[in-house]
């Protein structure tokens, strides 16, 4: 429906952004949702997902404009194209939701996540953990004689790969922030 020249991602027109058919293929999409930072807004978004049976793979939220009372929620979700369109339309219906952008559809975007990993080990394993951390450009943010806490940023896949490598080297605890994402290029949401 690109012939309509409607700016993609604008919530009001999401009904026009449909891909051609109702396919059964599951797709993973990253949505950027700009909301009024008021009490209960996160509960409204989460309640929508649980109430209508949609998936949340990852969700992050923080205030991004203190003066303008704006928060940005980044949601990674999986569903058929029809379900993804429904999710966007339903999000757009929530009164304090200002904009819904489907970063997966709107062009290239970058996705980053931060993780903290606690690795306890000694001897060769400790040295190997440090060496791998260097390769992955993870930083040591805390250290004892028996442990490290590594901080790593990157795509969720990179963090998965790093955590998989750390597991046999003594990974005992993992904390992840969930995905923050942004469209490439000079245009702003």
């Amino acid at each position: 429906m690109s012939a309509l020249h409607i700016k993609k991602g604008s919530t009001k027109h999401s009904a026009y952004n449909l891909r051609p058919n109702f396919s059964d293929v599951q797709e993973t999409h990253t949505l950027a949702v700009l909301v009024e930072n008021e009490p209960g807004v996160l509960a409204r978004v989460i309640g929508l997902f649980s109430g209508r049976g949609y998936n949340i793979d990852s969700l992050t939220v923080a205030e991004v404009d203190h003066q303008g009372h704006r928060s940005r929620i980044t949601i990674v979700t999986t569903g058929t194209p029809q379900v993804i369109e429904q999710i966007k339309a339903q999000l757009g219906r929530i009164v304090p939701v200002h904009e819904v952008h489907d970063l997966t559809v709107e062009g290239a975007s970058v996705e980053r996540e931060l993780a903290l990993l606690k690795v306890t080990s000694g001897g060769d394993k400790r040295v190997e953990a440090l060496r791998l951390a260097d390769i992955f450009r993870a930083n040591v943010v805390d250290s004892t004689l028996e442990s490290f806490i590594f901080q790593i940023t990157g795509s969720p896949e990179k963090i998965d790969a790093f955590a998989d490598l750390m597991r046999p080297l003594g990974l005992v605890e993992l904390a992840r922030t969930g995905v923050a994402a942004m469209a490439r290029g000079q245009e702003a949401l």
């Binding site: 009001k12 027109h13 009904a15 026009y16 449909l18 109702f22 429904q86 339309a89 339903q90």
Partner: peptide
């Protein structure tokens, strides 16, 4: 008037919000 009603259940050929 509600974009979420369109294509929720039945695929629409001419959607008008």
């Amino acid at each position: 008037v509600d974009p979420s009603s369109i294509n929720k259940v039945i695929k629409t050929d001419i959607p008008i919000v």
